[in-house]
């Protein structure tokens, strides 16, 4: 290349001006992090490390996490009416609903009613799309804000009805 360069551009090249400009951005952040206290500092401004698991992150209200079967708070009975919609709508077939016709007492009368017997939810294949909770007519099946789903065995990934109603056991650590 034979094009002539101005003295300014040659000097700025020799003095590594382009590199120092970038370095100035980094140093500005470092200086700010030194000045600001870590606790309570805006995480977008200063260096910030969340002390997980001692500090637990607050996930969004609409978070689609661990599945849960809700019980009616007044009677303690399952809200599930065994309609099987969640199993039908699931794209990856992780839900299987067991149902039976039982005789139940309604005051004086005895009548047959479809009740839930078993409920299996395979969290290993679940992709947490939320279609099941969206379709549930009684707001029974819910994807909660719980996000720690690790277990020690493959079999533990398949949640039965008891586990779904109780919810996953979360170990909390002290700060």
């Amino acid at each position: 290349m034979s094009e002539r360069r101005s003295i300014g551009s040659v000097l700025s090249r020799l003095l590594l001006v382009d590199l120092f400009k970038g370095l100035a951005v980094t140093l500005r952040y470092n200086a700010r992090a030194l000045v600001e206290a870590r606790d309570g500092a805006d995480p977008t401004q200063a260096i910030y490390t969340a002390q997980y698991p001692k500090e637990r992150p607050l996930v969004g209200e609409r978070w689609r996490g661990a599945p849960k079967l809700n019980n009616d708070p007044r009677t303690g009975e399952s809200l599930c009416i065994a309609c099987n919609i969640c199993a039908l709508v699931c794209p990856v077939d992780v839900i299987s609903v067991g149902q039976a016709n039982r005789e139940v007492r309604d005051g004086e009368k005895r009548k047959k009613k479809k009740v839930l017997t078993t409920f299996e939810f395979d969290t290993s294949r679940c992709m947490f799309c939320g279609l099941c909770q969206e379709q549930c007519p009684t707001l029974c099946l819910e994807l909660t804000q719980e996000f720690e789903l690790a277990v020690e065995s493959r079999a533990g990934l398949v949640w039965d009805r008891e586990m779904l109603e109780k919810g996953i056991h979360v170990v909390t650590y002290k700060k």
Binding site: W63, C129, L143
Partner: peptide
Amino acid sequence: EEILKIFENFTGARLTAH
């Protein structure tokens, strides 16, 4: 991360928004 937080609060998931 800021965008993912917005998504998390809006849609319930960070990556696979649905």
